[in-house]
Design a protein around this nucleic acid. Structure first.
Lengths: 202, 202
DNA sequence: CCACGTGACGTACAGCCTGTATGTTGAAGA
DNA sequence: TCTTCAACATACAGGCTGTACGTCACGTGG
């Protein structure tokens, strides 16, 4: 057998650890979550945890990586669907992409793990290495294309991508903890649209 | 005597604790700083710490509050000086205010304490209560005035202030850890100027 | 002037939590 | 079949936080 049953077990425990850690990190936060709770929910022991991961922060890094990758994947899929339904409207494509980005960020897991605890746990350096890899690359590609198409003004792409990503992230946080999320979602959507429109070539 | 010597001693130890904590939190980060190191640098004991502050997080909150207040104060002073030198140029005033904001954020203390560790330690809710109080109020007032003057388009002010603040914050982080900070500072300045200009009434 | 109360600490202790060192088991290869 | 090694489980040590308690100076009323 190409893939042995033992290998399946190994992958299963690792996945169980990641799933348990993800849920607990997202709900209680990194610092308030003990390794004992994680392994209890995953139905293994701490030995398994420290066998698969270097330390607690390493586990967190793995969790954050899956969350980020998942979000990026969802975003790309969402975007490709929209591109099929409304082809050849590049500006609307970009605009819609940002709004989708915002909606993807507005999940409890993503916010707490990636945006709140991520920088503090991994340190800023290591954190935006991860984010660069998964998120900014996509955004930068969009922006570059929009510039090449002459839709938005020429600006240095790397900082623009980072600043716009931060804008979206903050918008998602604002939406999530607003008294009326629906109103907040509409308002930040309006602001983001306006900012984007301000970048258009006049 | 109205202010007793004892009261001065009390204020001194409290200030020493705040100063020591600020330096250590800024350099090593909250989680990597033990209470023992703090009291050692402040030349007191842990008893004093837990007498003045409820717990370690409460000390952090106090530190962050002073850092934020200090930044806001510096920004206001800087802005008033500029207003005196170049009066009655409201748009340039706003533009210059944002660039000053950026430079104020680009200090090690502010970044690590307020932007990186702040949200994770205090939790997002408590964190942006603090930031709203010290930072966003000022920004919102500027924006409101600019709208009333008809310089920028009407937009919901609270979310706009938060998103722009996030933009500046991220810009400061980008600048700080760029390979060439000078180039990065120029580029993010350019981007911010462009975003602001995009909000102008057409 | 003096006893007394209280605030501002210092000290000692207990609990938790992380990381590591060591033991055990089952499967794969020779 | 014997051996070896990966994948765990268990036990232990250290550090760190928070708290309970003790103490001492300072202010205060009699």
């Amino acid at each position: 057998m190409a893939v042995t049953r033992r290998a399946q077990h190994v992958a299963d425990t690792r996945a169980a650890l990641l799933a348990a850690a993800r849920e607990l990190f997202a709900t209680r936060g990194y610092a308030q979550t003990g390794t004992e709770e994680i392994v209890a929910q995953a139905r293994v022991t701490r030995g398994a945890l420290y066998h698969h991961f270097k330390d607690k922060a390493d586990l967190f890094r793995a969790v954050m990586e899956t969350v980020a990758a998942e979000a990026a994947e969802a975003l790309v899929a969402h975007e490709m669907r929209h591109a099929q339904d409304h082809p050849s409207e590049p500006w609307d494509q970009l605009r819609h992409g940002f709004q989708s980005f915002l909606d993807v960020c507005t999940t409890g897991d993503f916010q707490r793990i990636v945006l709140v605890d991520g920088p503090a746990v991994l340190g800023p350096g290591s954190w935006d290495a991860l984010v660069d890899e998964h998120g900014h690359g996509l955004l930068a590609a969009w922006l570059r294309q929009a510039m090449d198409n002459g839709e938005i003004d020429e600006l240095p792409v790397p900082p623009l991508a980072r600043l716009l990503a931060s804008l979206i992230s903050e918008a998602s946080m604002y939406t999530a903890r607003a008294a009326d999320p629906a109103v907040a979602r509409r308002e930040v959507g309006e602001v983001i649209d306006r900012v984007l429109a301000g970048l258009r070539k006049s």
